[in-house]
């Protein structure tokens, strides 16, 4: 249990930007050999399809697999501890010197680069459904209504998610999956 906490604490402390599942894989599969590759992949797929930050869901699932409810809690708290204090500390620090234009430009650039990282993840999501007209249509409808028209996310998702799942169901039935 302390090992789980420490592993997640390390991942949380170094969780800059995305691409964290690679780090989790290194700790849980390669370094400690706690779970197999296959278990990791199955958990990752689930972590991504449910609400919540992917890596947070991922470590909760791994904690449950290894040590039950206590393990899941240890992983969650371990992961979030450093980020919680770090954002508050950095925010305070930037406010002390917030009148310097240089720092503002730097932080602005940090946000721009972060947008670029999100764009890559969006591109991967589009590539994943490129052979599915319904999948592409779902992406366009949601990005257009929420992103361009500024509609509330809640009603859009409540309508679009069941429709998209129903089409996936029909498609998989045709495929014989």
């Amino acid at each position: 249990m302390p090992g789980l906490f420490v592993a997640c604490f390390k991942i949380g402390s170094l969780s800059f930007g995305g691409g964290l599942s690679g780090w989790v894989h290194r700790e849980f599969v390669q370094r400690h050999g706690w779970i197999t590759d296959e278990e990791f992949a199955a958990n990752l797929a689930m972590a991504q399809m449910f609400p919540g930050v992917n890596v947070v869901n991922l470590v909760i699932g791994l904690g449950e697999l290894l040590r039950g409810p206590g393990g899941a809690v240890a992983c969650l708290i371990g992961f979030l501890t450093t980020p919680f204090f770090a954002v508050l500390a950095l925010d305070g620090l930037t406010r002390l010197v917030a009148d310097t234009r240089g720092l503002e430009a730097f932080m602005e650039g940090v946000a721009f680069a972060a947008i670029g990282m999100l764009v890559v993840v969006c591109g991967q999501g589009i590539a994943r459904v490129r052979h599915s007209p319904m999948g592409l249509a779902t992406i366009i409808v949601i990005a257009g209504s929420v992103g361009v028209l500024g509609w509330s996310m809640l009603p859009v998702v409540l309508v679009a998610a069941p429709v998209s799942i129903a089409f996936a169901n029909a498609r998989i039935a045709v495929d014989g999956g």
Binding site: A45, M46, Q48, M49, F50, E108, A111, F112, A114, I115, L118, V119, V121, C122, G125, I126, R128, V129, S132, M134, G135, L136, T138, I139, I140, V141, I142, A143, V146, G147, V148, M153, V157, A160, A161, S164, I165, A166, F167, A168, N169, R171, I172, G177
Partner: peptide, 27 residues
């Protein structure tokens, strides 16, 4: 398991693109 995964994936991608637009706009 597979139906849910394949159905929800494009929903997540669409929301992420909307997020990119929101941040770009207010930047």
């Amino acid at each position: 398991h597979r139906v849910l995964r394949e159905g929800l994936a494009p929903v997540g991608t669409g929301l992420m693109i909307a997020g990119v637009m929101a941040i770009l706009r207010l930047s």
